[in-house]
C-alpha cells in the first residue's frame, strides 16, 4: 500500500527585491494513514512554507519551483492548478498557531464549523448543525450546544484551538497539517489539545503533520520526526532513534539547548551564530559556520540526506554520517568541553 502522502524534493522560492529567497530547498517526506510525523526546526527554517506549499496556499509571490506531491499513490503535481488545489484541499486541512486570527470574529463558532458541511458537502441546515455539534463534542468541547452560539472572543485560547480543529475536521480530511497548534497555549491546555489531536489520529486513522519548535511536544505525539534547517531536512528518523542517537550536529545541539524539566541545573549547549541568508546560501553544508564539528570538507559539498549505516529509516545530511556513532560514547565531560568551546 502506498503512503497517504509522499513529497519528493520540494523547492519553494520567494522573489525578493534582490534575487530569490530559497525558502524550501529539497524537502522530501512521507506520511501514512494513522501516522503522526513531526517537523522541528528554528524560526525561518521553512516549516510553515512547506506546509502551505502542500496545500497550495503559498503567500503571494512564493512559488513551488520543483518537486512532486503524491497523494494516495497518485502524482498530483501535473494536474492543472485549480484541480490540484481542489484535490489537495479535499484531502488535507490545516490548523494554525493563532486561533484568534484564524477564526472570523463576527461569526458564531458553530456556524463556522457548519460552513463546510453545508457549502461543500451540501448538507441541509439542520444536518450541518448536528454535524457541527458532533464535531465540537469530538474535539472535547463541553456543552457543545451552548458553545455553538459563542463568538470566538468569548472562548478561551484552548477552546478556540479546539474549534479550529473541529473546522479542520469538518471537511473530512485524511491528513491534518498542524502548524504550531499549541505554541500560543499554556502547558496545561497544550496537553489537552495535543491529546485531542492524538485521539483523532487513532480513531479516524488520520495522518498528522505536526510542526513545532518544541522537540518535547513532538516526541510526545509523533512517531517519526524531520529536523529542518535553512530550508532542508537535515535529519529524519523514528523519534526514539533520533533522540537517542542524533547523527546531525544540529539535532545534537538542539537537543541539548532545551532545559530538561526533570533535571536540576545543567549547563545548556548553545549554538553560536545565525542561520544563513536564504537568498544567498553559501556553498557547502549550510550549518557549517555554526557547527562545532565542522571540517574543511563541510564548506565544499552540501551533504545529501543519507541513510545511517545500519538503520535505513534514519537519515542524516552530515558529512560525518559514518563516523557520528562515536558521539554516543562521549562522556559528559566531553560535552562540557564542547559547551565551553561554543
Amino acid at each position: 500500500m502506498s503512503p497517504l502522502l509522499e513529497v519528493h524534493d520540494l523547492h519553494v522560492e520567494i522573489p525578493v527585491p534582490h534575487g530569490h529567497l530559497h525558502a524550501v530547498r529539497g524537502v522530501s517526506l512521507t506520511v501514512d494513514a494513522g501516522e503522526s510525523i513531526g517537523v522541528v526546526g528554528e524560526s525561518g527554517s521553512g516549516k510553515s512554507i512547506t506546509l502551505r506549499a502542500l496545500l497550495g496556499l503559498l503567500p503571494q509571490p512564493a512559488q513551488v519551483t520543483k518537486g512532486s506531491i503524491v497523494l494516495d499513490g497518485v502524482d498530483v503535481t501535473g494536474l492543472p492548478e485549480r484541480r490540484r488545489t481542489k484535490v489537495l484541499t479535499d484531502a488535507m486541512s490545516m490548523i494554525f498557531q493563532d486561533s484568534l486570527t484564524a477564526l472570523n470574529p463576527v461569526m458564531r463558532v458553530g456556524d463556522q464549523i457548519a460552513e463546510v458541511p453545508r457549502r461543500r458537502l451540501g448538507m441541509s441546515k439542520s444536518a450541518a448543525h448536528a454535524r457541527a455539534v458532533e464535531l465540537m463534542d469530538q474535539v472535547g468541547i463541553p456543552e457543545p450546544e451552548r458553545r455553538f452560539r459563542a463568538y470566538p472572543h468569548q472562548l478561551s485560547g484552548g477552546m478556540r484551538q479546539r474549534v479550529c480543529i473541529a473546522i479542520a475536521l469538518s471537511a473530512e480530511p485524511r491528513l491534518i497539517l498542524a502548524d504550531e497548534p499549541t505554541t500560543a497555549l499554556d502547558v496545561t491546555i497544550q496537553a489537552q489539545v495535543l491529546e485531542v489531536i492524538d485521539r483523532l489520529r487513532r480513531d479516524r486513522r488520520l495522518g498528522v503533520i505536526l510542526v513545532s519548535h518544541d522537540l518535547a511536544v513532538i516526541s510526545q505525539t509523533c512517531s517519526r520526526i524531520y529536523v529542518m534547517y535553512a530550508g532542508r531536512v537535515i535529519e529524519s528518523g523514528r523519534i526514539g532513534d533520533l533522540l537517542a542517537l542524533a547523527r546531525h550536529p544540529y539535532t545534537f545541539a538542539l537537543l541539548r539547548a532545551v532545559p530538561d524539566p526533570d533535571l536540576p541545573v545543567h549547563r545548556l549547549l548553545t549554538i553560536p551564530g545565525q542561520p544563513p541568508d536564504l537568498a544567498a546560501v553559501p556553498a557547502g553544508c549550510s550549518f557549517a559556520p555554526r557547527c562545532a564539528f565542522a571540517e574543511p570538507g563541510c564548506y565544499e559539498v552540501d551533504p545529501a540526506l543519507t541513510p545511517v549505516p545500519d538503520d535505513p529509516d534514519h537519515a542524516s545530511a552530515c558529512i560525518r554520517v559514518e563516523t557520528a556513532p562515536q558521539w554516543l560514547d562521549w562522556t559528559p565531560a566531553d560535552v562540557l568541553d564542547l559547551v565551553e568551546k561554543t
Partner: peptide
C-alpha cells in the same frame, strides 16, 4: 508539572 511536555526517554527507542 504533569503537563510539561517531556522528551521521550531513550528507553523506548527501536
Amino acid at each position: 508539572l504533569a503537563s510539561v511536555p517531556r522528551m521521550l526517554s531513550s528507553t523506548t527507542d527501536g
